[in-house]
Amino acid sequence: MKKTIIVFSGDLDKVMASFIIANGAAAMGDEVTMFFTFWGLNALRKPERIPTKKSFMEKMFGWMMPKGVNKLGISKMNFGGLGAVMMKKIMQQKQVESLQSLMETARMLGVKFIACTMSMDVMGFKPEELIDGLEFAGVASYLGEADQANVNLFI
Rank of each mutant, 00 (worst) to 15 (best):
Q95K: 14
E97G: 01
L41T: 08
V85S: 07
V96R: 03
N78A: 12
K71S: 15
R49P: 08
E48T: 12
K88W: 04
Q92G: 08
V32T: 06
M34L: 14
M103F: 02
M120H: 03
V96H: 09
D13M: 09
M34T: 01
I114W: 01
K94E: 11
Q93G: 05
D30W: 13
D13W: 05
P47C: 09
A115F: 07
V111L: 07
N78R: 11
F35D: 02
K89C: 05
S55T: 15
N70E: 15
L99G: 05
K67V: 04
G62D: 13
V85R: 11
F38Q: 09
A84Y: 00
L99F: 11
V85D: 01
E58Q: 14
I21T: 03
D30E: 15
G29Q: 09
I21A: 06
G10Q: 08
R107S: 02
M86P: 01
E31Q: 12
M118D: 12
R45A: 11
D11A: 13
A84I: 00
L99M: 04
N23H: 04
K46S: 07
F79R: 13
A17C: 10
G29P: 03
K53I: 11
L41F: 06
S18T: 12
K71G: 10
S9Q: 01
A25P: 02
K54Y: 08
F38V: 11
T52W: 10
A26Q: 00
M86G: 11
K89H: 13
V15L: 03
K53C: 01
R45Y: 00
I21C: 02
T117L: 02
G24W: 05
K89T: 14
K54C: 08
M16R: 14
M57E: 13
S101M: 10
K53Y: 12
G81E: 07
Q93S: 14
K94F: 09
A43R: 03
E97D: 12
S119C: 15
E97V: 05
K53G: 05
K59S: 15
C116V: 00
S98F: 06
I20F: 07
G29M: 06
V85F: 09
T117F: 12
M60P: 10
V69E: 01
T37G: 01
L82P: 00
Q100T: 15
G81I: 06
P51K: 06
K53N: 11
K14V: 05
F56S: 13
M16L: 13
K88H: 02
F113C: 02
A115D: 00
A22F: 00
L99P: 07
S75C: 08
K76A: 12
N23Y: 05
T52C: 14
G83S: 11
W63T: 14
S18V: 03
D13P: 10
I90F: 14
A115V: 06
R45M: 14
G24I: 11
F56E: 14
I74S: 04
N70I: 09
D30P: 05
A26T: 10
A25L: 06
W39E: 10
E104T: 11
V7Y: 07
V69S: 03
A25I: 04
